[in-house]
Nucleic acid binder design. Structure first.
Lengths: 152, 152
DNA sequence: TATTGTTATACTCTATAACTATA
DNA sequence: TATAGTTATAGAGTATAACAATA
């Protein structure tokens, strides 16, 4: 199907996938030694942006299964970076939020962890930086495009 | 150092990392049922672009350790998609290349596997498409920026 | 001694399946 | 019966360490 698709766009998809792979490995490789993994950092960032949130909602935001998010949150809780409070009206749900230590970890993390990427972007010319800023939003949109929503 | 870094760029790094995570999961989730995994697809794409290549060179291209690339190539060989030939002058090296089945797998793969991404990009307006085309190259460049090269 | 590649082992991330508790 | 979360298990993808063969 869609055999008339633009060859340029096809090449772009391939190039994008390849670049993505490289970049993901780089982020992972560069991220770590202090302890927080990438998915932990991402969950922390989502919690900071969204405030108290349930496992299921976080899973939707990050587009992983609730079980996967549950495992990440359990580890963050074990490390004292997030804490759980029961949902006020629904006994099944659990709300997660950053602890003070979690906020602090976030602060350090943003600055330090991807500093290599920040430095690399800082060296680009302004127009290229603009391209990346615009691309960040587009990539996020792409990730969620045409998802068969499990529920409404 | 660089405590005066632009807050806008810092936010971009965070947003980029978040978008990257989502997109990678989506690519992986969307990719599979036919058998080829993402890293296998990437290795195949590199081999098609570069021709006969050693494990170490492929590892450099994909920015993984030679052992990791070795595992991927071993699996592809088991599936008959790549074949090895001894290096003509250096007995330590092994050259890998696509088999006919590998070329065919590539052809199908480009078209089918990331068709969801192709469709999503096709729906963007031309300027946004241009942004992504430019971003693909920039992201790849970012991935390799300031790498401490193990050797020269 | 340095380089290419292999084997063995471990960890992260994620998924699916099965279960409990609550709605 | 449907939803939120947990527990158990498995597989992909990668890394590090230790090793063999060749340069």
């Amino acid at each position: 199907m869609n055999s008339g698709a633009s060859p340029l766009l096809e090449a772009t998809v391939t190039e994008l996938a390849l670049a993505l792979g490289q970049l993901v490995r780089r982020v992972r490789a560069e991220s770590n030694p202090d302890g927080l993994t990438w998915s932990q950092t991402a969950a922390l960032a989502r919690l900071q942006a969204a405030g108290a949130t349930t496992t299921a909602d976080l899973a939707r935001l990050e587009q992983v299964k609730p079980q996967s998010m549950g495992a990440t949150l359990a580890e963050l809780e074990r490390e004292g970076l997030v804490e759980r409070t029961p949902h006020p009206s629904d006994g099944r749900q659990v709300l997660f939020a950053l602890t003070d230590a979690g906020v602090e970890a976030r602060r350090k993390s943003s600055a330090a962890k991807q500093s290599w990427m920040l430095a690399a972007i800082a060296e680009l010319d302004p127009q290229q930086q603009q391209t990346l800023i615009a691309a960040a939003a587009l990539l996020s949109r792409l990730a969620g495009a045409h998802l068969k929503e499990g529920a409404a």
